[in-house]
Design a protein around this nucleic acid. Structure first.
Lengths: 348, 348
DNA sequence: GCTAGCACTCTTAATGCTTGATTGCTAACA
DNA sequence: TGTTAGCAATCAAGCATTAAGAGTGCTAGC
């Protein structure tokens, strides 16, 4: 498509998107001519614009107005800057990102949250981080801890942290040995398993091994089930949701409300990205009609540690967005995060 | 103040607020006369309105408009309905509330969240629930659980749940007895203590008892400190934040943004209620100027279990609000919740 | 003390006019 | 053939004017 464009058409189209992104106003032929193409006249630019309009790249809001980019124009623009990721951030900007993470060795959740916050702060757009929580969560061991009052706390230690939500009630007094035996059996069944498979394997092994411990087993399964349902969509962190309201695209309450409703609902956020191929480094989607966030551009980056996809981070902003900066921030964040996480894995 | 009003003035003022709440439009003398006072003429109503305006209850947006209630008028209105809490909800409404909680025996947090949700759903206003989390949280016991790889998990069991956030690293191999001794000593120091006092008492006892266990003690104190800072403001649950945008009072994006910023920030929410005397059953505040939620009325109810204040629930809505319904819902919710919680205490 | 009637005030919406921005077209030119 | 200058045509946006409508306050009479 874009290959058919002449060199001058490309320059004009790029100039138009550039101007529109900074001013937000329809761009006139003379704007382009005076700032980007002084060697020709505005009449020439006009005839080129006419051609670009016929090709579906741009349009006029009304006869006596300048031109405004359409989706294809944004796509063309993003492709052209995506190929050149050099020097998109200043030194102080990269330093700012590094600064934020150099001392962070906490939970993975805190890191994700902080990443979303930094992205939003730096770009001034709404940002999000979707953790793929259930992938590769493996049970390391199960512990039963006896508490006062005939209760036992079920501890499930995974490679991503400890689950310790709920105490289960025991029948009358049980001896320590009873719990020890139960613990041993539980570990034989659960240790080394991936948490997203429990439903499958448990049914097979349950009757053989854990005859006398139905009560405890039920407790453990309950906890796992709750954990799985709570985490199956992946944790979603949204930062700077209200920043979108600063942009004139969302200057009416109705649209703003729709936007916020989508953004603050975990499920609809997950749905937005459910079809995403996480092997793709960057994805830029402009104006997804059916999603409730039309009028938006969504830029996502897949964050990996080794080959594991840790999550997707990204920015939701108006179509008229500072793509260069956003892609720069996401790109640098990628590098920083994978360093941070690898280091903290060593220490953890 | 309101005692000085003649009976007819009271009727007219009440009628005016009633009409304004339902229509949202300035109320004219003939509106009041035709629907509430057919026995007199609109001219009579006019002269009464004139008087009420002089008294500061109402005002005219402009000369040729009807009257609009001011704060004192709302206060007068609320007082008049607060005195009469009978039959504010229909049977199906009270059934709806009971329904929602009859099977709920989960965490206190879930109940609070659900309460906020029900309040918002029933009233169609933004609602909130502020848990007073740190009050009366008492440490029942502390447990050290040895995990693989020279780690130990610190479990702090309180009367409100289990804190099990973080593993601590141990020096090389330690024997089970070492942990047992440490556990015993930790319990001697911490068991039975209220969590909001740790800083005070720990310093006194630390040197005497826990000589050889500095490492572990530090871990425990860290966990407690993090817990305290995270929970000291009280959990705040806000439901239906976007509902406010449905009301014409928040029809411009700037105001909407301010409102949402206050509402969704835990700290500023806590601040809004920090000066509240929780012994007061209901508090109605209309148009608190300095708070960022001016133009709002805030109705709160203190929720108690026995004598302990469990939290505050309430509604934030436009001044022009269905006070009758809101107070009805909050009142009935109070009764329902205290029943639910007392029952679940028995079983827990 | 209440009421009818009327003049007065002010908002709101509609209308028409002017200005300015920008284009598309055409004719001339390199 | 591509480029340019000039000019008429188009349309939004702002502004003033007007008319209609709503509601009040006042006054005189009951």
């Amino acid at each position: 498509m874009s290959k058919e464009l002449s060199d001058r058409k490309k320059r004009i189209l790029h100039a138009l998107v550039d101007l529109y992104i900074t001013t937000g106003q329809p761009v006139s032929s003379s704007d382009i001519q005076s700032r980007y193409l002084p060697e020709v006249s505005s009449a020439t630019v006009r005839s080129e614009l006419s051609a670009l309009e016929a090709l579906g790249y741009i349009e006029q809001p009304h006869t006596s107005a300048g031109r405004v980019p359409l989706k294809d124009a944004y796509k063309f623009y993003v492709e052209s800057i995506d190929g050149d990721k050099t020097n998109m951030l200043t030194d102080s900007e990269t330093a700012f990102i590094r600064e934020k993470f150099i001392h962070k060795l906490g939970h993975i959740e805190d890191i994700s949250k902080e990443a979303a916050k930094v992205i939003s702060d730096m770009t001034n757009y709404t940002s999000f981080f979707i953790e793929k929580t259930l992938v590769n969560v493996e049970i390391e061991e199960v512990k039963l801890v006896q508490l006062k009052g005939n209760k036992a706390l079920v501890l499930i230690v995974t490679n991503k942290g400890v689950i310790a939500d709920k105490a289960i009630d025991l029948k009358e007094d049980v001896k320590a040995e009873y719990l020890d035996t139960a613990t041993e059996l539980l570990n034989r069944v659960f240790a080394g398993r991936r948490i997203d498979e429990i439903d499958k394997f448990v049914i097979e092994e349950i009757d053989e091994e854990l005859q006398g411990f139905g009560e405890i087993l039920d407790g453990v399964l309950d906890i796992l089930r709750i954990y799985v349902t709570e985490h199956s969509d992946g944790n979603v962190f949204v930062e700077g949701a209200l920043k979108m309201l600063d942009y004139p695209e969302y200057n009416n309450v109705e649209d703003a409300k729709n936007f916020l409703a989508v953004i603050s609902d975990k499920e609809s956020m997950s749905e937005l990205f459910i079809d995403d191929d996480s092997s793709i480094e960057f994805s830029v989607r402009i104006g997804k009609e059916d999603s409730g966030v039309d009028k938006c551009a969504i830029i996502t980056a897949a964050y990996k540690v080794g080959d594991d996809v840790m999550g997707q981070a990204g920015v939701i902003g108006p179509e008229r967005m500072d793509y260069k900066k956003v892609i720069g921030v996401l790109d640098y964040m990628k590098k920083t995060l994978s360093t941070v996480i690898n280091n903290s894995d060593d220490e953890d």
